[in-house]
Computed example of a mutant assay.
Amino acid sequence: MYFAIVSMDRPGATEVRADTRPAHREYLKSPPHGVTYRLGGPLLAPDGATAIGTLLVIDAPDLETAQKFSANDPYNKANLFAEVSVRPWDWGTGNPDKG
């Protein structure tokens, strides 16, 4: 099942994001968390350059696993986010698994 994780940064947390980015990216590649990272990237401010959040799409067996994955993300552990939403997502258009 697919899940969309939308996380918005705390104001003034630009340095936290930069400092934690390598650990976050490594975490996305680590298999022990029981999910498959499908796609994602930073959400941007209207200037098109400043990161203000993160969007991830993962494949996980259930909501609890997806929530645990989100909670253990180094960004989340570093208190980067003001809010996080983990929601089941029906990946229709563009889904490589649906050919």
Rank of each mutant, 00 (worst) to 15 (best):
H33I: 00
P61H: 07
D9W: 10
P88Q: 15
L39V: 15
I58Q: 13
S85W: 05
A13D: 00
A71Y: 01
R17C: 02
T93H: 13
S85E: 15
S70H: 03
L44W: 02
E26V: 12
V35L: 03
G53I: 00
D90K: 15
H33M: 00
G41P: 01
I58C: 03
N76K: 15
H24G: 07
V86H: 12
L39R: 09
P88I: 14
Y75K: 04
E26Q: 11
D47N: 07
S30D: 11
Y27F: 14
T93L: 14
N95P: 01
I5S: 06
K77F: 08
P88K: 13
L63K: 13
Y27E: 11
E64L: 13
H33R: 07
F69E: 01
A71G: 03
G99T: 00
Y37D: 04
R87M: 08
G53P: 02
G92K: 15
H33A: 00
R21Q: 10
A82L: 12
G53S: 00
A82Q: 13
R17M: 06
G41C: 01
G94A: 12
D59P: 02
N79W: 07
T50Y: 01
M1R: 07
A60H: 10
Y27M: 08
E26Y: 08
K29S: 05
A4T: 10
L28S: 12
P22D: 03
P11W: 07
N95T: 05
S70P: 00
G12H: 10
V6L: 15
G41I: 01
R10C: 02
